[in-house]
Design a protein around this nucleic acid. Structure first.
Length: 570
RNA sequence: GCUUGAAUGGCGCAGAGGUAGCGCACCUCAUUGGUAAUGAGGAGGUCCCGAGUUCAAAUCUCGGUUCAAGCACCA
């Protein structure tokens, strides 16, 4: 039996046992649903008073009792009528039963006197659970719909062994240490100011430097890959957003219009209409196609207050945006080209594993089925051509066209949604943009929206967590710290500093009246890649002592160090 | 936006109906040291904001703001 148990079963069963314990302790609680999820399980309860972490020990103790008793799970199939009768005091279960399709087998599971409507499967008895923990409590809407009542959800996790649980808790701790909000403060990279408003990022000098380095790299690579950079304003007349359709489809996410003279302006939530205005500034020929225009474009979106999260979800951010206007027969090639470009850029940051999703036509969409199918097929063909694996997200496309989303896997295996490539048949239509073809007639180009990072803010947040704050040499705000051991070494140290600066490195002198250990600690806390330590011995031998961030020490000549740095920044 | 909770010097925290304390950071002085914390002294706070209760509110109550976790949202 035991070898048939999956982790999902174990967790799902643990959720039943938790519900059993809750029902014993708080009989007035109404039960909703309790599935297993990625890292554990939850159970939703309707409880007037609500749960608090103070309740966890009692619930866990009750669960332990049930586990110790090795309470068996027993399955029973019942008719719809019987089910309704059995759960007549559980309104949420009644609703679930009433919504079950005609003819569906209805089964119940009983454990420790707790009966639940459930498809199963479950473990044979509670004694199988060797390690579990209640993690947290939070609100969750009944059936995931914000129109419904908010229930109390208790999250927990369970494992086959205590060691696995310990390991899991340890991983959570490690992930917390990487939290970009914490590291962003500690490394003095950025802040979000209550006085300035929520969701708006202030880049401090070091963070602004990291952002600049990434932007510079991004711009250089775009020029190399055949893009041209454009720059557009932050606000535009309300009328432009009517033309683009944003006021119809996106108004909830836009900041309110501001009156100026007799007209109204709106902060841009997107860059595309601006790029189309540039396109329309003159007559275009097929000879110009494809046009690739890129812009780190700062946009503002009214995100719901509860959605804001550090750099990951903000109200003002800089998209690494580009729009490609091409002819239909160029679409496949352009998509392939973007995919190749994405992988190249991500590699620079050490991301080499991806998950790719192709999103197809949603219910609410513009454009005929035919054109959707064609574009979707083109996307899939271009991925296949490149030998790229993908999953289909049925109905997940934007209203204006299908898209490819790329999730990247970070250093500790978490996936982050970054790139998006969206084919758009709608906006070129709305703006009535054309090019003159070989035949002398007007034709409508296809537009591709694409972002690699998504936004610089979010991507830097991801990078902070990915690198745990220890940026690679080329991205480190301070690359080298120089620590003279005594004042005797100061002059020699200054010469080394000057020479490194002349080579273009970002150098910081730590010459405070402190013992060497303290200086090293300062540099380590700032996660500076290299420390150059200079004492009398080094001066005598005309060398420098290098301490890398990972603690490795080496003594070498200045030229050898310069060589090493140059190799690493290449 | 919803549910629950939180907010005390720059940061991390303690405390509490009678107007605040610790550690780190900061400043000054002494110390000149070989790979993650030298010692001593000093300065720094409308205890998030507003109203109410009270002889007295940073502490209690209400409202607001921001943050956190989760839900919903996420072109």
């Amino acid at each position: 039996m035991e070898n048939e148990i999956t982790l999902d079963m174990l967790r799902h069963s643990t959720s039943h046992i938790m519900a059993a314990a809750v029902k014993r302790l708080f009989p007035e609680v109404k039960i909703a649903i309790g599935p297993s999820i990625e890292n554990g399980f939850y159970y939703d309860f309707d409880f007037e008073r609500g749960f608090a972490p103070e309740d966890f020990p009692a619930i866990e103790a009750e669960m332990k009792k049930i586990i110790k008793e090795r309470a068996p799970f027993t399955r029973k199939e019942v008719s719809r009528q019987e089910a309704l009768e059995l759960f007549k005091n559980e309104p949420y279960k009644v609703e679930l039963i009433e919504n079950l399709p005609e003819g569906e087998t209805i089964s119940t599971y009983e454990v420790a006197g707790f009966l639940d409507l459930c498809r199963g499967p479950h473990i044979d008895h509670a004694g199988r659970i060797k390690a579990f923990k209640i993690m947290k409590v939070a609100g969750a809407y009944w059936r995931g719909d914000s129109k419904n009542k908010m229930l109390s959800r208790i999250y927990g996790t369970a494992f086959f062994s205590k060691d696995e649980l310990k390991e899991y808790l340890h991983r959570i701790e490690e992930a917390e240490k990487r939290d970009h909000r914490k590291l962003g403060r500690e490394l003095d990279l950025f802040s979000i100011q209550e006085a300035g408003g929520p969701g708006l990022v202030y880049w401090h000098p070091k963070g602004a430097l990291v952002k600049k380095l990434i932007e510079d790299y991004w711009k250089t690579e775009h020029y190399k890959d055949g893009y041209e950079l454009v720059q557009t304003p932050h606000i535009a007349l309300k009328h432009l957003w009517e033309t683009s359709g944003h006021l119809d489809f996106y108004a909830d996410s836009m900041f309110s219009p501001m009156p100026v003279d007799d007209q109204e302006y709106i902060l841009k939530p997107m860059n595309c209409p601006f790029h189309l205005l540039i396109y329309k500034s003159k007559i275009r020929s097929y000879k110009e196609m494809p046009i690739r225009w890129a812009e780190p474009g700062t946009v503002y979106r009214y995100e719901k207050s509860g959605a804001l999260h550090g750099l990951m979800r903000v109200r003002g951010f800089t998209q690494d945006d580009a729009h490609i206007l091409c002819m239909e027969n160029q679409l496949e090639n352009e998509i392939q080209r973007i995919m190749t470009f994405i992988f190249k850029i991500f590699k620079k940051f050490g991301f080499t594993e991806y998950e790719i999703f192709v999103s197809t036509k949603p219910e609410k969409a513009v454009g005929s089925d035919e054109i959707w199918e064609k574009a979707t097929n083109t996307i899939i063909a271009s991925l296949k051509e490149e030998g790229i694996d993908y999953k289909i997200d049925a109905g997940g496309g934007a209203f204006y066209g299908p898209k490819i989303d790329v999730k990247i896997k970070d250093a500790i295996g978490r996936l982050w949604q970054c790139s998006t490539i969206q084919v758009d048949f709608n906006e070129p239509e709305r703006f009535d943009i054309n090019y003159v073809g070989e035949d002398g007639e007007n034709h409508r180009p296809i537009m591709i929206h694409r972002a690699l990072f998504g936004s610089f803010e979010r991507f830097i947040g991801i990078l902070i967590e990915h690198y745990a704050g220890a940026f690679p040499l080329w991205l480190s705000p301070t690359q080298i710290a120089i620590c003279p051991i005594t004042d005797n070494n100061l002059e020699y140290s200054k010469k080394v500093e000057e020479k490194l600066k002349a080579l273009g490195y970002r150098v910081m002198m730590i010459a405070e009246n402190e013992p060497l250990k303290a200086k090293i600690k300062t540099a380590q806390l700032e996660k500076i890649p290299y420390m150059v330590i200079i004492g009398d011995k080094d001066m005598e031998n005309n060398v420098i002592s290098i301490r890398a961030r990972d603690g490795k020490q080496e003594t070498m000549t200045f030229d050898a160090f310069a060589e090493k740095l140059s190799a690493e920044t290449k």
